[in-house]
Amino acid sequence: MGPKLLDIDQAAEQLGVPRGWLAKAVTARSVPFTKLGKHVRFAQHHLDAIVAAGEQAPETAPPPLASVRSIA
């Protein structure tokens, strides 16, 4: 048996995103998916890739400011 495939509603729910966001991403072909005839389906590796593509590295903290002494 092949991988379990999710429809767009199930995939959006698993990702925790609105269905409309995922549908637009599919239309723009900016996320991976499988097309079976007219049906769009997602395997777990597609969802993992979507999450990985959205990961953001933390910004590094700026160095501490040097002590500024006022000239009197």
Rank of each mutant, 00 (worst) to 15 (best):
G54Y: 03
A66T: 08
A72V: 15
Q10G: 10
D7P: 09
A11H: 05
F42Y: 08
A61I: 08
D48F: 04
A28M: 14
V51M: 10
P3W: 04
G37N: 00
D48N: 13
G54M: 02
A61T: 03
V17D: 08
A12L: 07
A23V: 06
L36N: 05
L47V: 09
R69M: 08
L47P: 04
P64T: 00
D7H: 12
E55D: 07
A66G: 05
Q56P: 03
P3Q: 14
G16L: 15
L15Q: 02
A25N: 05
A53I: 03
A52V: 03
V26C: 05
G2V: 12
K24V: 00
V40N: 14
L65N: 10
L36Q: 04
A61R: 15
G54T: 06
I71V: 15
H45L: 00
D7F: 09
A53D: 10
D7C: 13
P3F: 05
R29C: 07
E55R: 12
D9T: 10
A28T: 08
Q56K: 14
A52L: 15
P3L: 05
W21Q: 11
I50M: 15
V26L: 02
I71M: 10
V68Q: 06
G20E: 10
A49C: 03
V68L: 13
H45K: 14
E13R: 15
R19G: 02
I50T: 02
A28P: 03
M1V: 03
K38H: 10
A53C: 07
A66N: 03
P58W: 04
G54N: 06
K35Q: 13
L65P: 14
E13A: 11
Q56I: 09
V26Q: 01
A11K: 01
S67V: 07
V17G: 06
Q14R: 07
L36A: 04
P63T: 08
A61F: 12
E13K: 15
L36G: 02
H46P: 11
I8T: 07
F42G: 04
R69G: 12
S70G: 09
H39T: 05
E55A: 13
R29I: 00
T60H: 08
L22M: 09
G2W: 07
E59A: 15
P63E: 14
P63R: 11
A43P: 09
A53N: 07
A57H: 06
A12P: 00
K4R: 11
P63K: 10
